[in-house]
């Protein structure tokens, strides 16, 4: 009979984890390039429980994986010339101290040497894998839809937008960066457009997240109810058995 208790507990633990993920989505609703996440659940079949009526199957609830929705976030105009957004698929390549990172957050700027860097100060790479150096005195920076960086009339570099065959093996490392955990190689994307003076907002749908949260909280209460009635059952069983003696 304790099995019902443990099955309920496994569900509650998953629900808590789900709430953690919803909370992270909502906290990042205003983070540029953030992609919404959802917990995928699975059933964990355990050894069948042996009861008087014979073996009964038990299935616990478990976490399977976190699914990321890489859908397009809304583009918002910022007016800053080095704010870039990718319309379509792909990531900017960033050279972080720990290795190559990928990001959809195009909130770039120049460092004191004129190198194009991310908010964290990591160089943004061009299609040849080198960093991009601009000289502000040479005039207006314009970045075309295919990522060609032009200053005045001089072509400086071409920003690399790359994509992966399988996006699920990308791992978030914080600071809006992703790390490639598999051995697949990034390939340049052709059909995406780079928009200058814009940033991609998160693709968090707040109404969806709030309703998910309501669902989680109600399911949690339900489980608590089941555990309560389970405890009532044991109690009355103990009482009856006492009387029967």
């Amino acid at each position: 009979m304790d099995n019902a208790l443990y099955v309920g507990l496994s569900r509650q633990m998953v629900l808590r984890r789900q709430l953690d993920i919803v909370a992270n989505n909502i906290a990042n609703a205003d983070t540029a390039g953030f992609k919404v996440e959802e917990l995928q659940q699975k059933t964990n079949p355990a050894e069948p429980a042996f009861t008087l009526q014979g073996p009964r199957p038990i299935k616990f609830v478990g976490e399977d994986g976190v699914i990321r929705d890489f859908g397009q976030g809304a583009l918002r105009q910022t007016g800053a010339p080095l704010d870039l957004a990718i319309e379509g698929q792909g990531f900017f390549q960033v050279q972080a101290p720990g290795g190559m990172r990928y990001t959809r957050d195009g909130n770039f700027r120049l460092d004191d040497n004129g190198v194009l860097v991310t908010q964290g100060g990591y160089p943004v790479l061009d299609d040849g894998g080198g960093s991009i150096t601009l000289d502000p005195t040479l005039g207006q920076v314009s970045i075309s839809q295919d990522g060609t960086v032009t200053q005045g009339t001089t072509r400086i570099a071409k920003l690399a937008a790359v994509n992966f065959q399988t996006l699920s093996t990308l791992e978030k490392t914080g600071d809006n960066l992703y790390r490639n955990t598999s051995n697949q190689q990034p390939t340049p994307v052709e059909d995406s457009k780079i928009r200058q003076g814009m940033l991609e907002g998160s693709n968090v749908n707040s109404i969806l997240e709030i309703s998910k949260m309501i669902e989680i909280s109600r399911a949690y209460e339900q489980m608590a109810k089941i555990m309560d009635s389970n405890s009532e059952l044991s109690k009355s069983a103990v009482q009856r058995m006492g009387k029967a003696q």
Binding site: A23, N24, D64, V66
Partner: peptide
Amino acid sequence: NIVPTGVQVGAGVKAGSVYRIDT
């Protein structure tokens, strides 16, 4: 066989930068 999707739980958000738009 490899695990196709991991389980990663984020710890929230921080201010990355407050930047000036020098237009």
